[in-house]
């Protein structure tokens, strides 16, 4: 495992920790899109179908469990915790995420490496992960006061896939059997590109020492 991949995973982990910290300590999920969180839970379920059958390393298995468990605990907090659920801005979270699921499923059925259940579900998870942040980005744009934890959460999440892209370039150059991953690369590129606008305003607010606010 190269440094880009490891740093990417750590950024991903950090984003989840930051979000859980906000929810657990502040007892608030203000500004967080439940729809994006639902999509991520679905992404992890579909991608990690092999969690008990396809052992790669202890690291991989533990990370998979952590991502699945954190995704479901976030969903539980936002939907069932009696204090946290009242801080959820349902009216601001209006993205039609079922259309994303449908579109990604159709695309996965049409464009995949192999037509098997496992492979199509895996491909679906790759497509869905690329666009899962959209409800959250739309919600951020509507939120006048984005708190630091929410801003950092989205920033770490964007950095994660950006580092994965460097990892792909590194692996492409250093590994012999690493040339067939175009499907992941295109999706990963789109996923990272979706954050470009957010990154711009995040860095700008950080440099000017101002509160993060996205233009409507």
């Amino acid at each position: 495992m190269n440094i880009f991949r490891f740093a990417g995973d750590m950024m991903h982990l950090l984003s989840v920790v930051v979000l859980l910290l906000k929810i657990h300590k502040m007892k608030s999920c203000a500004g967080i899109s439940l729809k994006t969180q639902e999509l991520y839970a679905l992404v992890f379920i579909c991608r990690y179908l092999d969690i008990f059958t396809g052992f790669i390393s202890l690291y991989n298995t533990i990370m998979k469990i952590v991502f699945l468990a954190s995704a479901f605990s976030i969903l539980w907090y936002m939907r069932s915790h009696k204090v946290v659920r009242q801080t959820y801005d349902k009216d601001q979270d209006t993205f039609r995420h079922y259309f994303l699921i449908l579109a990604c499923m159709v695309l996965a059925l049409l464009v995949h490496h192999k037509f098997t259940f496992r492979e199509v579900m895996w491909t679906f998870s790759i497509y869905l992960e690329a666009v899962a942040i959209l409800p959250q980005l739309v919600m951020l744009q509507r939120t006048r006061n984005i708190d630091n934890l929410t801003g950092n959460y989205v920033f770490f999440l964007g950095t994660y896939r950006g580092l994965y892209m460097l990892n792909w370039v590194y692996r492409y150059l250093t590994e012999v059997h690493y040339h067939h991953r175009w499907l992941t690369w295109i999706s990963g590129f789109i996923q990272t590109a979706l954050y470009a606008d957010f990154f711009y305003y995040y860095v700008k607010s950080w440099r000017n020492n101002e509160k993060l606010q996205l233009p409507a």
């Binding site: 990370m63 991502f67 490496h113 990892n167 067939h180």
Partner: peptide, 10 residues
């Protein structure tokens, strides 16, 4: 290329 090789990323 083996199946496992392609799925070693998270």
């Amino acid at each position: 290329i083996s199946e496992a090789d392609a799925k070693d990323e998270l």
